[in-house]
Design a binder for these strands. Sequence first.
DNA 1: TGGCCATAAACCGTATACAGTTTGGCGATA
DNA 2: TATCGCCAAACTGTATACGGTTTATGGCCA
Lengths: 257, 257
Amino acid sequence: MEEAAIGQTGGRASPKPYREGARAIRDVDVDIRESGLGEGTPSTLRTHVMKELRAQILSGRYRPGERINESKIARELNISRIPVREALSQLQEQGLLTSHERRGMFVTKLSDDEVQQINSLRLVLEAEAIRLARARMTPAILADLTDLVEQMENWDGPLIDAVALDRKFHAAIWRAAGNPCLERVLISLTTSLFAHRALEHVSMEIRRWRLNHHRALLNLVAGGDGDPVLAMLEHLRMGYTEPERYSSLAVTGALST
Amino acid sequence: MEEAAIGQTGGRASPKPYREGARAIRDVDVDIRESGLGEGTPSTLRTHVMKELRAQILSGRYRPGERINESKIARELNISRIPVREALSQLQEQGLLTSHERRGMFVTKLSDDEVQQINSLRLVLEAEAIRLARARMTPAILADLTDLVEQMENWDGPLIDAVALDRKFHAAIWRAAGNPCLERVLISLTTSLFAHRALEHVSMEIRRWRLNHHRALLNLVAGGDGDPVLAMLEHLRMGYTEPERYSSLAVTGALST
DNA sequence: TGGCCATAAACCGTATACAGTTTGGCGATA
DNA sequence: TATCGCCAAACTGTATACGGTTTATGGCCA
């Protein structure tokens, strides 16, 4: 009876999370399957661990370049290494981890060049997203975006959460573009980028946000007639040096600089 | 001695592939570790299985929508399910497989909409690649590209290999762009696309290739002054219907059509 | 005292074993 | 004859066990 009750916590009809292993299980100290399993928790440990680790990496709990010990994580979570391995494997494909054969997983450390390469792509893709979003804009979406911009302009909380707001605003534009594929690529591109930004030079930047630069993007998607590429360039230049380095903007004569 | 010899095939200093499991191993019939392990084979089974399965999916051995039975594959390869699971997990992240929780992996079946969404992105990204490649072109790369175009124009072999040539030509341009990130995204985007094209409507298309359309792209990256976006649009229109559907080309007045 | 080699511990890659869920098929009933 | 419910086989998710490699530590020698 006590065993059966565990799987039915909350009375949901979802598949029971695995409570017992092949033979034995430690009955001491908390278990990930009891603690963290809230509402939208996926039913497999692999997915749960993956999301948990991703959040921890993005929040700065694990630093870029740091080694990820799968045995240690498995012990900490009181589960076997298999789900942890698979979660790490997924995170590797997402670009957050880098695998060194037979040596383990390491949190991806982006070089300056790689940051510029990613941003050069963002330039092109976000500009495209802005063009699409502008053409498909609805009052509801515009209201959401405006709300986010005003939240940022009036922000007075911890800086980490401001970064989340920033991401939320951009992600909303990506979604409004109406091309799920474009949205996926942009998310995948910027995830590792934000893992770095969560740690470094966030303090200097908050001031610049107030300079209505997100509002410039908002005006564009609201129907403004500026050039999305130049707007994105200006936007990225606030946080990074020469973000257009590996884009065609650097090689064509389009820049007045 | 016979055991030791297996790991040292070719006399390379690479780590020995695993020959024995925890306790026992079947000594009958061929083993993947003996058969397919050629030169550049990665040292882990997971990577090897991943590449093997990817090649089989891309070659049409597994059809879109088909279920992938991990136990069956493990038995066929005479290995345990663990490396197979991890390989499948990686392929899922690459977009070639879709996981249905507790029901298994299925070869991703792209809908018409998804194909259009991917192509709309290709339009933007390949155009950017062409602009970059044009600016960074070297005689050596140009020679390679020209050679590929001529191979395609004079092609008289099986159609499947012609598709590979097509991919090779585009991939060469992506690489010539000099932004590894852009290259990675384009590879990832088109991989699942080519898995479909390997099966359908390849016969009609071979004729159109001879119409020098790849040469049009070649001329562009060689220094021609046309618009890369329009060139890519024309190129994609040969194989797909309305590839610009989810791109900004569809919503701006740029199209004369 | 510093560098090199050997030994040992930790850890990754893989194999086998088991629990719960899904699924296909069979029989009973309307 | 068609539909619903039950049962068994197969399969996925996870746990534990083991072999080999990498790495860190300590002793030895220059």
